[in-house]
């Protein structure tokens, strides 16, 4: 499975994003919210890497840092551009970054907030084309119509405004906009979280079809393990700004190596009344990213915590080929995966 994709399109190294906490009359910095802390990962061409985690774990910030929507504090993001050359995004000048944006796009969570309500569908979808000076107006119109058919919208609704569409249709408009410049890498930030179950399935199918057709690479950010298990090739699990585990989807669901992953997998309610899950109850709440506990950020809630966990931040290591984990005790633990995956 690991050998299916070999060419990394995105490589993230030691990426950090600290938001300063200011207070007082002169807004002095009194601390930092470590939204993203020391992340290492890569995404191969044509694959889907999913990021899961609870709210506030920094998965959205990480996605935006990779696209440079938010400037990361430090670290590097390497992007494999069209000429197959690795370029550094974090230090790229703005004008060059704008050009590179043709190849990387984003789909947003909220289909209501992400479309400018004052623009027609035609204008929304052709926005990236106008910005990159691609095509003339007439040609653009035809192309937008084509795109609308591709994402399953009626091309006759070209002149309508977003308020005339349902949530699922709006999300399709957002997808069409993201795909207008034929990108190679797309960040889907909770792209289906706001949709109803039946519509969610439609949009996920669309995303998968488009990936096949256009050889897209996805960074799929989600909190829904069910969705993730279907759509992704590899999964990264985040906890308050730290990546705690990253592995092949099947491997991670079948045999997780981090106690947090185990708890997350067991907490998801299973739609099967005869098989009520044996949950691992996590004590307490998610740690506050402004005041992280010492050592491993997960240790106050971890039932396997040892003394070392309170003192030392665990190292990010590759325990098995392609299976990364940040836990002191990972090799000694026998953790349970999700039912249906365990064999």
């Amino acid at each position: 499975m690991e050998n299916k994709y070999t060419n990394p399109i995105i490589e993230v190294k030691n990426l950090k994003k600290y938001f300063p906490i200011t207070s007082g009359f002169f807004k002095k910095t009194v601390g930092y919210v470590k939204a993203v802390d020391n992340i290492d990962m890569y995404i191969n061409e044509g694959e889907t890497l999913a990021l899961v985690g609870e709210s506030g774990c920094g998965k959205t910030t990480l996605g935006r840092c990779i696209l440079q929507a938010i400037k990361p504090t430090s670290g590097s993001v390497l992007f494999n551009n069209k000429e197959n050359k690795q370029v550094e995004l974090t230090t790229m000048p703005y004008s060059q970054l704008r050009d590179t944006r043709r190849d990387m796009q984003m789909i947003f969570q909220d289909p209501y907030a992400s479309l400018d309500p004052r623009m027609t569908v035609l204008n929304i979808i052709s926005e990236p084309l106008i910005c990159h000076h691609l095509m003339g107006p007439a040609e653009r119109r035809e192309y937008v119509k084509e795109l609308m058919v591709t994402v399953g919208l009626n091309p006759r609704h070209l002149e309508r405004y977003p308020h005339a569409f349902s949530g699922g249709q709006r999300q399709r408009i957002g997808i069409a906009r993201a795909l207008a410049t034929k990108p190679r890498f797309v960040v889907c930030d909770e792209a289906v979280a706001a949709l109803d179950v039946s519509v969610q399935a439609q949009v996920l199918n669309l995303l998968m079809d488009l990936q096949e057709k256009m050889n897209l690479s996805y960074l799929f950010i989600s909190h829904d393990l069910g969705v993730v298990s279907h759509i992704s090739d590899r999964v990264g699990v985040m906890y308050v700004g730290h990546m705690v585990e990253l592995a092949d989807t099947v491997k991670l669901f079948a045999r997780p190596m981090h106690p947090y992953t185990e708890a997350l997998l067991s907490a998801k309610p299973v739609a099967d009344p005869r098989n009520k899950s044996r949950r691992i109850m996590l004590e307490g709440d998610v740690a506050n990213p402004a005041h992280l506990p010492s050592g491993c950020p997960f240790h106050p809630r971890c039932r396997y915590a040892k003394d070392i966990c309170k003192e030392q931040l665990p190292e990010w290591r590759e325990l098995e080929p392609g299976h990364y984990v940040a836990c002191h005790c990972a090799q000694d633990l026998q953790l349970h995966g999700m039912r249906g995956y365990e064999k």
Binding site: Q200, Q202, L204, G226, D233, V270, A271, R339, G340, Y341
Partner: peptide, 13 residues
């Protein structure tokens, strides 16, 4: 249409 984890990997919905 619900994405449950026990259906197998990379299937369509």
């Amino acid at each position: 249409s619900i994405p449950t984890a026990d259906k197998q990997h990379k299937g369509r919905f």
